[in-house]
């Protein structure tokens, strides 16, 4: 259970990134945060991750107020952020240091299998494609079996084809343990395909502008008419300029 209560965030330079953000995310729910760039969605995610602190207000996980990264939270960043000196396997193992070698070996192997990278366990990050590197990052986040998974524009640096494939893959992985997922994205289609709920943030300062609940079964077809209609509406609502809009549809 994730509670976000009246979060207000002001940076040192005086910029107010978030104002009066209230949100509750239920176990196993997939929630997307969408909004134009600079609306504070990544900042909110970083606060939940414990990497930034809210100026006022609080975030609590399992009724425990967050001040630092929580062990039950996994994070997938926009970039894979793999340690270039570690093999795929050792990158995945990064968060398992407290376990014995045998235990961590077994968990690492199982997780690598989950993301379909068992054959690449001994490779170095520089030998991987962008999509594979991001799958390693997903495996690294999953390996501690977090009940909450935070994803900060996880597929935005990938090409359209790989992105679609990884979105499906993510859902497939989600099926195993059904973690709560909170996904920051600027790709409305991605949000529509994945989420139970879409939170639209609007800057600035960033506030929750509206919430869309999607009660559609998954996996969802990207061509689904309901989704297409929502896409149109949300794009209009976000005041996306024509230029940005055409980019978002690439």
């Amino acid at each position: 259970m994730l509670h976000i209560e009246t979060v207000y965030k002001q940076f040192d330079n005086g910029f107010v990134a978030l104002e009066d953000v209230n949100l509750q995310v239920n176990p196993g729910e997939i929630v997307s945060l969408v909004g134009t760039s600079g609306c504070g969605k990544s900042t909110l995610l970083r606060i939940i991750a414990g990497l930034d602190k809210a100026t006022t207000g609080s975030v609590s996980i399992h009724h425990e107020v967050i001040n630092a990264p929580h062990p039950d939270v996994g994070i997938i960043f926009q970039e894979p952020r793999l340690m270039p000196w570690l093999t795929v396997q050792d990158n995945v193992r990064f968060g398992l240091e407290h376990l014995s070698r045998t235990d961590s070996d077994a968990i690492t192997a199982a997780t690598l299998a989950k993301v379909g990278l068992s054959d690449f366990a001994h490779m170095l990050p520089r030998q991987l494609s962008g999509g594979m590197a991001q799958r390693v990052a997903i495996a690294r986040a999953l390996v501690t079996k977090p009940s909450i998974l935070l994803l900060d524009e996880p597929f935005s640096a990938l090409d359209a084809f790989t992105r679609t494939k990884l979105q499906d893959h993510l859902l497939h992985i989600w099926e195993y343990d059904r973690p709560t997922m909170m996904l920051v994205t600027h790709d409305i289609e991605e949000a529509l395909v994945l989420s139970d709920r879409i939170i639209v943030l609007r800057g600035n300062p960033g506030r929750i502008h509206r919430t869309v609940t999607l009660d559609l079964p998954r996996p969802r077809k990207r061509t689904n008419t309901t989704l297409q209609q929502w896409k149109e509406r949300l794009l209009t609502e976000l005041d996306v300029s024509m230029a940005e809009r055409s980019l978002a549809e690439i």
Partner: peptide, 22 residues
């Protein structure tokens, strides 16, 4: 980004042996 993911990195994968240690 599209170009990047399809550049030299992916080429390296197809030529390297998949199962043996690096």
């Amino acid at each position: 980004n599209f170009l990047k993911t399809n550049g030299s990195k992916s080429a390296a994968i197809s030529t390297a042996s998949a199962t043996r240690p690096y």
